[in-house]
Structure formats: structure tokens, C-alpha cells
């Protein structure tokens, strides 16, 4: 888990001023590169939005990938469902 988290880099964008609020967008990047060779992959996804309001504390809003979450849930449901079904039918 520590190794995985160390592979990810957090990148911050320039702060954007909107009225009394300052917004900073944050992305999480996984960058894998073969040393000395032009081979690699980059997986960049939105991580969070930090909102600083004048005279108030900072709030960090996470950017959740609902589609990915639902996909994993549905596929997990399919695997779990097939395991339960096979267990039930073997008992008969």
C-alpha cells in the first residue's frame, strides 16, 4: 500500500479566484517510466478541489469517480452473486 501511494504524485493547479473564494484544483498522477528508454505510461485523474474562503477555514472537496465506483460495485456483485449461486446449487 505504501509502495502504491508513493507511485502517485499530487499536482496542484494555479489558484483561481471566484468572488470571495479561491479554488485550487488537485490531480493525482501515476507515472511509470522505463529508465533510459522512451517507454512509459501516465494515468492522471482529478483528486480534489481545495476551497479557501476569506475569513473561514479551508475545505477540501474530493472528486469521486462515480462511474468507476459503480462499475467496480457491479462487477463485484456479479462475482459474488455467481459464487453464492454456485454454493446454493451445490447444496441441493
Amino acid at each position: 500500500m505504501t509502495l502504491l501511494s508513493s507511485l502517485f504524485e499530487m499536482h496542484e493547479g494555479k489558484p483561481i479566484r471566484v468572488g470571495e473564494q479561491t479554488i485550487t484544483v488537485i490531480s493525482r498522477v501515476l507515472r511509470l517510466q522505463v529508465p533510459g528508454m522512451p517507454i512509459g505510461l501516465v494515468w492522471n485523474r482529478p483528486a480534489a478541489v481545495r476551497v479557501e474562503t476569506d475569513g473561514a477555514s479551508d475545505v477540501t472537496l474530493p472528486v469521486i469517480d462515480e462511474t468507476r465506483r459503480m462499475q467496480i460495485m457491479l462487477l463485484g456483485l456479479g462475482i459474488a452473486g455467481s459464487i453464492v449461486l454456485s454454493a446454493l446449487l451445490r447444496r441441493r
Binding site: 469521486i64 457491479l74 462487477l75 456479479g78 462475482i79 452473486g81 449461486l85
Partner: peptide, 26 residues
């Protein structure tokens, strides 16, 4: 400030059909 998720219905339908396929094959 709010963060509104974008749902890709096609991907979700594909995942649901795959899950149903798993169970039907079993």
C-alpha cells in the same frame, strides 16, 4: 463550491450486463 459527478450510463450498462452474464453462466 460543489463537485457534480458525471455518470457514464453506457459503461454502467456494460458492467451490469457483464455481472448478469457471470451469474447466468454460473
Amino acid at each position: 463550491v460543489s463537485v457534480q459527478p458525471v455518470m457514464d450510463r453506457t459503461k454502467l450498462w456494460m458492467a451490469a450486463l457483464t455481472a448478469a452474464g457471470f451469474m447466468l453462466v454460473t
